[in-house]
């Protein structure tokens, strides 16, 4: 475990150092290139703020409204049928909406259940294999002028839903539970 911790802690510093050293080695000016690139980054970050504000407000209100509990109560009979525990459905619902929300749901699942039990394993796999879909979409598209996103959201949600169903299946098969 310590080795992995060390690797994951060291990877970013190593990448940074490597990029700078490689640039010197190739006789470029890393400082100047950095300044230019960082300024470009600054410019492309500005358009993100407005969509970030509306997204986080909508998601924040949604989380506080208790709508999630209502929806979970409605769908859990169906998700139980395909062998997914109620706790995991809650995680699957919050996961595309809010990264920090998902993390706190995940943490409370691990507090109430063994991390090595079925519920703990399924929720771990779900957490590890999906991303905060709406946040990613809002940020990526607000950086450009795109208004018509076409099939992006349906495709992303199909991917999320597949991940949600497969995670329970994968745990059953790979851990033979």
């Amino acid at each position: 475990m310590n080795t992995l911790n060390l690797i994951s802690a060291a990877i970013i510093p190593i990448i940074i150092a490597f990029v700078f050293i490689y640039s010197i080695f190739k006789k470029c000016d890393p400082f100047e290139d950095f300044i230019k690139g960082a300024y470009e980054g600054l410019k492309s970050a500005i358009p993100i703020l407005p969509s970030l504000i509306i997204l986080m407000t909508a998601v924040g209100m949604f989380r506080e409204s208790g709508a999630l509990d209502l929806i979970i109560n409605i769908i859990s009979p169906f998700t139980n049928l395909i062998g997914i525990p109620k706790e995991c459905s809650a995680l699957a619902l919050i996961r595309p909406l809010s990264g920090s929300g998902a993390l706190s749901v995940f943490e409370s699942i691990l507090n109430d259940n063994s991390p090595d039990g079925f519920i703990g394993l399924v929720s771990s796999v779900m957490m590890g294999s999906t991303e905060t879909t709406f946040y990613t979409m809002a940020i990526y598209f607000s950086a450009t002028k795109v208004k018509k996103t076409g099939c992006t959201l349906p495709a992303a949600l199909t991917a999320d839903f597949t991940g949600f169903v497969i995670s329970a299946l994968a745990v059953r098969i790979l851990f033979s539970i």
Partner: peptide, 9 residues
């Protein structure tokens, strides 16, 4: 800014 700078290098 940081990663865009690094990426440019």
């Amino acid at each position: 800014c940081f990663w865009s700078g690094l990426m440019n290098i």
